[in-house]
Amino acid sequence: MNISVINSLQSELLKTRRSSASWIITSGAALIPVIMLINQLIISAKDPLQNAASGYWVRLFLKSWEMMSFFLLPMGIVLATSLIAQIEFKNNAWKQTLSTPQSLTRVFFVKLSVIFLLALRFFILLNAGIFLAAVIPSIVYEKVNSPVDSFPVFTYLKANFKFFIDCLPIIALQFFLSLHFKNFMISVGVGLGLVVASIFALFWEYGYLFPYSYITYDFMRMIGKDRIKDAIDIHLLSVAYFVLITVCSYIVFVSKSEKG
């Protein structure tokens, strides 16, 4: 990797410092663990042995993702992705960014990489939060022991990776919208509409064609309530949608006659 690509990435990351997108990622990742922690504290007070049961970590993970997969994660991506491009529009800074000595291709892909890095931060914070929600009750209450099962790192990594792949088409489409519409409400409005529509898509025979539902489909498959045929690989579809939308978005971005 060229050193200046790393510098471009660092520059873009600096822009997100204390930004709304950054706050949404942090607070969004903390929300469910905080709820889970309160829940665990209440349950542990009544039943100190509840975390001694086998499969505790997986149950905790699925419980956390129950709320996250249906609405919170897709909505969080819609907001955070839209806010990343909005940093330039809001501060009237596209003209400055596009008159720096970087190719348009680099500007496009570095911005996209920043969204990936923010998503990665979200997943790390969320899992750390889930871990703490499980461990803190044993610190608070003397009679509660730490979970008996060891932390299933590989299971968590695998599930998180699948959810990340499910997020890709949402990231791509929201990035496309937020790059091309100065008005923040357009990308957020369209995103919100598609998130709501994704819930209805779950009841449709061909709902798997609707990329905003993939996180929920994956979650339902994990809990054994699969709504689509096994032969349909939503991860493959997700990557295909991502590539297609990103290519279109890139072409539109570099061929714009008026930049900034």
């Binding site: 822009k15 204390r18 009237n92 596209w94 003209k95 960014t97 000595p101 900034g260």
Partner: peptide, 16 residues
């Protein structure tokens, strides 16, 4: 790389 510019209003990240 050898040019500096200020077009219309300054491009500043207000949160920085």
């Amino acid at each position: 790389n050898q040019t500096g510019s200020l077009i219309e209003s300054p491009s500043l990240y207000s949160h920085l």
